[in-house]
Design a protein around this nucleic acid. Structure first.
Lengths: 148, 148
DNA sequence: ATAAAACCTGAAGTTAACTTCAGGTCAAGC
DNA sequence: GCTTGACCTGAAGTTAACTTCAGGTTTTAT
């Protein structure tokens, strides 16, 4: 059994956030001793799932829906599986998007590195696509379209 | 030259969002003809950078700071390079986080797939760590800690 | 020439996920 | 016994990034 302060340190989440989650109904009938919240292993597990689903881009109200299903027992296994499969696709897509973003950023890093080096001023005009290394060119055009 | 409506379709962004970006000063002295915004190649390029930086997790006000540097010429190349290098690290870290999130999600998918198959009800109790395939076990423990 | 479509503005409204506040209770150490 | 730190509540405040609204102007198609 942990206090809210201990859980706050354990998960590196402000106490106010934990109380907010509780207010939103994310901790299904959590125990209390004279008004004070007692976090058990169940709430620790719940918080791990919350963190995972949040990082996957899910909103609190949808996380609550999922946690409600968990309270309803085995009859909701199928819904829960579908939900995680949907999250899996969402995260995979986000990783693809971020890799494309990284391509653009790498191009910009290459560009400004060139533009900055050897004194660095007034060199911009001299930068032409022929200077672009093949892997940067490939990444750039996958991100922005062809280098004309 | 494009109208705001054309750009809206081109970038799949609502007209209201483009006007909001303009209000926030993201399009440095954009041209107008009798009050109506005219988007040139410069604004198209700016929007590509905005989209990239937004996906990298940057806030509008910081994107504005960057775009202001762009208007200040070569003296800001170094700042701009540093900024993109910081973005690069942020995106790389986010990709790592998302891959860990994916490990947890894959574990959950495995778990609920098992729990759902062959009739599916009341099978949960029978699920033990020995049933866990090695790659799921490895992913799970890297995400949640060891399977006890 | 006129009506519809597309554009404009400033101001107010929205949403999610928290955080802060004011005022009060509980528990541990001295 | 008393102070201090950790806990509690409901309500209000915050922030980012938009969106909507009300009312007006410009462009375009017939």
């Amino acid at each position: 059994m942990y206090s809210i302060g201990q859980i706050s340190k354990m998960f590196n989440l402000p106490v106010s956030t934990l109380r907010y989650y509780d207010r939103e109904g994310l901790f299904h009938d959590m125990q209390r001793t004279s008004g004070i919240r007692r976090f058990s292993q169940k709430e620790v597990d719940t918080l791990r799932v919350i963190e995972c689903l949040k990082r996957s881009g899910m909103e609190i109200k949808d996380i609550k829906t999922f946690l409600d299903w968990c309270e309803q027992g085995p009859s909701t296994y199928h819904k829960r599986l579908e939900m995680f499969q949907k999250r899996k696709r969402a995260v995979e897509e986000e990783i693809v998007r971020l890799n494309r973003t990284l391509d653009m950023i790498n191009y910009k890093c290459w560009y400004y590195t060139r533009a900055t080096e050897d004194g660095g001023e007034e060199k911009l005009a001299a930068l032409s696509p022929e200077d672009m290394p093949d892997e940067i060119r490939a990444a750039y055009s996958s991100a922005f379209g062809p280098v004309e």
